[in-house]
């Protein structure tokens, strides 16, 4: 397990504070905007940066002041950083050579990793002849070769074209599950964060905003920031909540009579709403009348803006609705989540 205990790092115009654990076999994602401090956390764990205060522990051992080469933590950069003077096999074997692993054992391990990353036969290829995805897999194999205690991945798919990212994500998940290596994955892609993570940590301005399983963070976020950052969301003030069917709420709304009633207190994902007739069976807790104001076409679905007495709501529904059409909105019970 890796623990960051009360870590502080100050850069003058930016400061980071982190207190988190990465458990055995876990794939943890650090998710946030550019400049939120995700990569800094990774660099601190790797030893490329030293914290001003706090401790970093790996399996209970303090590695805070240990140089990177003695931490046994693998690192993969977004643009692969394969050594250009070495071929694929030599790149993967680099860490094994450092560990002075005997030749035959080294060759065996390289072959295993080539197989694991589905790069069999690439051993003697020059790294400059590989595609982006192949280079990324070599980088992954190279990081895994010395059997590190943890793997750090800094936006590893951001330089890969969108079509290939899906298969690489599956690859990564397969490799991580096969090796069981604790992994920290940094991304600003919502899809990657939700798809890959065992646990998701949302960062903002150098601090952790929220942490939990992807489902929890997505469906029951504590903060408005996390709700908005993980996907489209309808937000409601206390006053708006009163105009909605109360069965839609997952808890009793707070009694805001202190002037703070303008702030959003609850969120609802657009895909939870449906037009009348399409509501999930058994959960028609009540409906809301409205008129379609705008239609956004996204291929397999449309994003409708519907005017209701509770305000304008985003609704994700199948294509077919038209502007001006009167609709009845339905929603499963408890789908509106009250923020903490």
């Amino acid at each position: 397990m890796i623990e960051l205990q009360d870590i502080r790092r100050d850069y003058g115009n930016f400061s980071l504070s982190a207190d988190l654990q990465i458990h055995e076999h876990e794939l943890l994602t650090l998710f946030g905007e550019s400049g939120s401090g995700k990569t800094t956390v990774l660099r601190l764990i790797a030893g490329f940066e030293t914290p001003d205060s706090g401790r970093i522990l790996v399996d209970g051992h303090d590695i805070t002041r240990l140089p990177p080469e003695r931490r046994e933590i693998g690192y993969v950069f977004q643009d692969y950083t394969l050594f250009p003077h070495l071929n694929v096999g030599q790149n993967i074997a680099y860490g094994l050579r450092v560990q002075k692993v005997p030749g035959t054992e080294r060759t065996k391990r390289v072959r295993e990793l080539l197989a694991l990353t589905e790069l069999d036969g690439f051993e003697d290829r020059s790294v400059s002849t590989l595609s982006g995805g192949e280079q990324q897999r070599v980088a992954l194999a190279r990081a895994l070769a010395p059997s590190p205690k943890a793997l750090l991945l800094d936006e590893p798919f951001s330089a890969i074209d969108t079509e290939r990212r899906g298969s690489l994500r599956r690859h990564l998940l397969h490799i991580q599950r096969a090796t069981g290596i604790p992994t920290v994955f940094v991304t600003h892609s919502r899809t990657e964060a939700l798809y890959l993570s065992d646990r998701l940590i949302i960062m903002k301005d150098g601090a952790v905003v929220e942490s939990g399983s992807p489902r929890d963070v997505y469906e029951r976020p504590d903060s408005l920031y996390a709700a908005r950052f993980t996907g489209s969301v309808n937000t409601f003030t206390c006053e708006q909540l009163l105009r909605l069917p109360q069965s839609w709420l997952d808890a009793t709304p707070p009694d805001k009579t202190d002037g703070a009633h303008e702030a959003p207190v609850a969120v609802l994902r657009p895909e939870k709403l449906s037009f009348s007739g399409a509501a999930p069976a058994g959960t028609p807790g009540g409906c809301l009348e409205g008129t379609i104001l705008h239609v956004g076409y996204f291929g397999s679905y449309c994003l409708y803006v519907v005017e209701t007495e509770a305000g304008e709501l985003d609704v994700q529904e199948e294509p077919g609705g038209t502007v001006g059409q009167a609709v009845q909105l339905c929603c499963p019970d408890g789908a509106i989540h009250l923020l903490a």
Binding site: G47, P68, E72, Y75, F77, T81, F83, Y94, V98, P146
Partner: peptide
């Protein structure tokens, strides 16, 4: 970043000089 990668793979400064 080659230096960082090499360090993350366990390479110390002397080895890094000659191998990287």
């Amino acid at each position: 970043r080659y230096r960082w990668v090499s360090a993350s793979l366990g390479e110390g400064p002397p080895g890094r000089l000659f191998r990287l």
